[in-house]
């Protein structure tokens, strides 16, 4: 049973890790797009949604990754 297993990784940790990685990528893509626009016609592009959305995902991912990180049982 995974939740009782001493070395099991929490599902919340995996979700946090994925959000952390995606947060970095989306944030980075947003920064890049702010300086080198993709050329596509995107509405409300001046709000730079990718930057703050990526930052939110990163922060959430960081919280879950730290909060539910695997710990070794003594």
């Amino acid at each position: 049973m995974i939740s009782n297993h001493p070395h099991a990784i929490s599902i919340w940790f995996l979700i946090g890790l994925q959000f952390l990685i995606y947060g970095v990528l989306v944030f980075g893509a947003g920064i890049y797009d702010a300086y080198v626009p993709s050329g596509r016609d995107i509405q409300l592009a001046d709000l730079h949604a990718a930057i703050w959305w990526g930052a939110i995902m990163f922060a959430l991912g960081l919280f879950y990754t730290v909060r539910f990180r695997p710990r070794r049982e003594s």
Binding site: L25, V26, G30, D33, S38, R40, I42, Q43, W53, G54
Partner: peptide
């Protein structure tokens, strides 16, 4: 496509 640029589109 209307609102999402690179990165957000992939998401």
């Amino acid at each position: 496509a209307r609102y999402c640029g690179p990165g957000l589109l992939g998401l």
